[in-house]
Simulated scan of single mutants.
Amino acid sequence: MTDRPLEIERKFLLRKLPDLEHVPSVEIRQGYITAPQDTTEVRLRQSGEGHFLSVKGGAGLVRSEREVTISAQQFQLLWPETTGRRIEKTRYKGQLPDGLTYELDVYAGSLERLFTVEVEFPSEANANAFSVPDWFGKDVTLDKRYRNKSLAVADHETIKALLNG
């Protein structure tokens, strides 16, 4: 057993965008302090008016995650350290018919045609038994290219391949 908080989630591309007209959304910008090859990721995130520092470890379906709220001033002080390792997106947070929450990301900038959706689960068994809605596309949970840390540093050719893949 670990005393580290765990995040159990699956990530998918979208087959088609659902109706998002009444789904709450927030603008997010995030950057990474750690280098892409580091196994632990340290992330700064501004989500609406909130500012956060997160530390994530591991890979795949189950990862450790710790997040703390920081001030806007602390965020601005650290933000320059993320130059060259940033993404921007709009996150829509909605509910699936089975009661699970989804987070659908619509990326901006060089990733503007990328759409992903994540669902967090209470256990690995729930994650593996998940009935995927028809608007979800390919499961990319284990594909490191679709991790936000990887997307934040992806070059033009990689982005092109992801958008066309």
Rank of each mutant, 00 (worst) to 15 (best):
112 E>N: 14
42 V>S: 01
61 L>I: 11
150 S>R: 13
45 R>V: 02
96 L>H: 01
148 N>W: 04
44 L>K: 02
131 S>R: 12
25 S>K: 08
85 R>T: 07
155 D>G: 13
110 S>Y: 06
45 R>S: 05
71 S>W: 03
55 V>L: 10
29 R>F: 07
79 W>V: 09
31 G>P: 03
105 D>W: 06
17 L>Y: 03
3 D>Q: 10
73 Q>D: 12
152 A>N: 06
77 L>N: 08
63 R>L: 11
22 H>W: 07
92 Y>V: 00
3 D>G: 07
70 I>R: 15
154 A>W: 06
113 R>C: 08
23 V>A: 04
47 S>C: 10
22 H>G: 10
71 S>F: 07
76 Q>T: 11
34 T>N: 13
58 G>M: 03
145 R>P: 04
122 P>H: 02
86 R>A: 05
13 L>Y: 05
44 L>W: 00
138 K>W: 07
19 D>M: 11
125 A>P: 01
85 R>H: 12
149 K>H: 12
40 T>V: 14
112 E>W: 09
26 V>T: 14
158 T>F: 07
33 I>P: 04
161 A>G: 03
153 V>L: 13
26 V>L: 11
71 S>R: 12
95 Q>F: 04
31 G>C: 02
72 A>G: 14
87 I>T: 15
151 L>E: 05
141 T>N: 03
147 R>I: 08
138 K>L: 11
69 T>V: 12
32 Y>T: 01
21 E>K: 15
73 Q>L: 10
92 Y>P: 01
10 R>P: 00
115 F>D: 03
87 I>C: 04
118 E>D: 14
22 H>N: 14
92 Y>F: 13
113 R>I: 10
110 S>F: 05
133 P>M: 05
6 L>E: 05
80 P>I: 05
6 L>C: 10
114 L>R: 00
163 L>E: 06
82 T>S: 15
88 E>M: 11
53 L>F: 01
14 L>M: 07
59 A>G: 09
25 S>Q: 11
82 T>W: 03
8 I>M: 02
135 W>T: 04
102 Y>E: 12
64 S>P: 13
91 R>D: 00
42 V>K: 01
116 T>E: 08
68 V>M: 12
132 V>N: 13
10 R>K: 14
39 T>C: 12
145 R>C: 09
95 Q>S: 09
147 R>L: 12
154 A>V: 06
147 R>P: 04
28 I>H: 03
9 E>A: 06
64 S>D: 15
90 T>N: 06
142 L>P: 04
5 P>L: 13
53 L>C: 05
37 Q>K: 10
5 P>I: 03
22 H>F: 10
142 L>H: 15
